[in-house]
């Protein structure tokens, strides 16, 4: 691990990234996770149940957002606790004219900063800000990293 725990301070940024999600990504996540709820792949069903359209799995957003933290720390197993609340859906359009597999998709912006540092446990809590279309889609999204 290349990061020096003692050099970390509350408020430090760990960086930012953008995760792009298109319909093909939702199909792949459905298959990998076993969550085949049609709101994540069928426009007709999604709108019938009152959604603005097909939406990403909350767990896709949660799972992809934490990549910023695992890349920063260099060890996926160092994330000892990770939680979030799901507030707004991430709508994923079927972009007209685009190749279904290469469509640009919806951009999910992820940034993180250190919220707390525990010197005894040698952990930091990284607070993530995760938004799409200008709205926060995850709230109280926090990953505890052990050094």
């Amino acid at each position: 691990m290349s990061i020096d725990f003692d050099s970390l301070s509350v408020g430090d940024s760990i960086g930012e990234t953008v995760v792009s999600v298109n319909r093909a990504d939702l199909v792949r996540y459905a298959g990998a996770s076993g969550d085949f709820n049609p709101i994540h792949w069928n426009e007709r069903f999604a709108t019938e149940v009152g959604l603005p359209g097909v939406i990403a799995h909350g767990m896709f957003t949660m799972g992809s957002a934490v990549q910023l933290v695992t890349d920063w720390v260099g060890d996926p197993g160092a994330v000892v606790d990770y939680q979030t609340r799901f507030t707004k859906p991430v709508v994923v359009e079927d972009v007209a004219g685009a190749s279904p597999t290469d469509a640009a998709g919806t951009e999910i912006s992820v940034s993180g900063k250190i919220g707390t540092r525990d010197d005894d446990a040698r952990t930091v809590r990284v607070d993530l800000t995760v938004s799409a279309a200008g709205q926060k889609v995850l709230v109280k999204s926090q990953a505890v990293v052990r050094f």
């Binding site: 995760v19 990504d25 792949r28 996540y29 298959g31 990998a32 996770s33 896709f60 799972g63 992809s64 990549q67 695992t70 890349d71 260099g74 060890d75 996926p76 197993g77």
Partner: peptide
């Protein structure tokens, strides 16, 4: 599927 790229 979650676009994780860590080699581990």
């Amino acid at each position: 599927a979650v676009k994780a790229t860590s080699a581990a």
